[in-house]
């Protein structure tokens, strides 16, 4: 194999792209990209359902009465920033700098929690205004779409927290590097989905 010749090694004997240094690592990354393809279709189905049902509010609050730009903008900013910090974590991994990677992943997780806190507060407000998952078809499809995204964020923060703990004991090896890498891929994906939710649900909802 020419992997060894292709990847210049850095201090510590780790290849510069440790996530792709083994067949297992390459398999994991490709498999995860395919999984993200499947996730895209899952969210597309929910987007489609939301678009079909968003006018069915049955006299309950309408999107432009519910959505508050400042809070949604803050949530968007937080989540987009967390994508940046996860990139910085992967850069730390490529520099074989465990401490840098763990720090940036920790910041990513904290931003993720901040986003979840805002989202929980947002849902809480909506419920008080009479917009619940059972209030109308609009409510059902809204909470399914945004809630599925939120549960992805929730899964992500626990996952990355687990990886930060593993990084503490095992460091960066060709076995652990693919895990960090796919976790950051996942985080970017969750971010991209939010960009679409921000546009389709919130911006288009507020324009109406």
């Amino acid at each position: 194999m020419n992997i060894e010749s292709k990847t210049a090694t850095v201090a510590g004997g780790i290849p510069s792209e440790p996530e792709k240094a083994t067949l297992e690592g390459k398999n994991k990354i490709l498999g995860f990209w395919l999984f993200l393809g499947a996730e895209t279709v899952l969210f597309a189905t929910m987007f489609g359902t939301y678009l079909a049902l968003k006018e069915q509010h049955l006299g309950g609050p309408r999107p432009h009465e519910l959505f508050q730009m400042p809070m949604v903008a803050a949530a968007t900013l937080i989540l987009l920033t967390s994508s940046l910090t996860s990139v910085l974590a992967i850069m730390g991994m490529h520099e074989n700098n465990v401490q840098k990677m763990r720090t940036w992943f920790l910041i990513t997780v904290l931003l993720g929690f901040a986003f979840l806190g805002l989202e929980a507060y947002e849902f809480y407000e909506y419920v008080h205004e009479g917009h619940t998952i059972t209030s109308s078809a609009f409510g059902s499809s809204f909470y399914l779409l945004v809630g599925t995204h939120g549960s992805h964020v929730l899964f992500g923060v626990f996952w990355i927290t687990g990886l930060i703990m593993q990084a503490g004991t095992r460091g960066i090896t060709v076995h652990t590097a693919p895990k960090y890498y796919v976790a950051s891929l996942y985080w970017h994906f969750v971010d991209v989905v939010w960009v679409f939710i921000f546009t389709v649900v919130y911006l288009m909802g507020m324009m109406a």
Binding site: L42, T45, L53, Q56, I133, S136, L144
Partner: peptide
């Protein structure tokens, strides 16, 4: 994945009273 999403909707409609397919609730 579309089946997964559809089954979630069906599950929610049946178990939690959502209105994806229930016409009376706008579904």
């Amino acid at each position: 994945p579309p089946l997964t999403a559809g089954l979630f909707m069906m599950m929610f409609d049946r178990l939690f009273g959502t209105h994806f397919f229930a016409v009376a609730g706008g579904g």
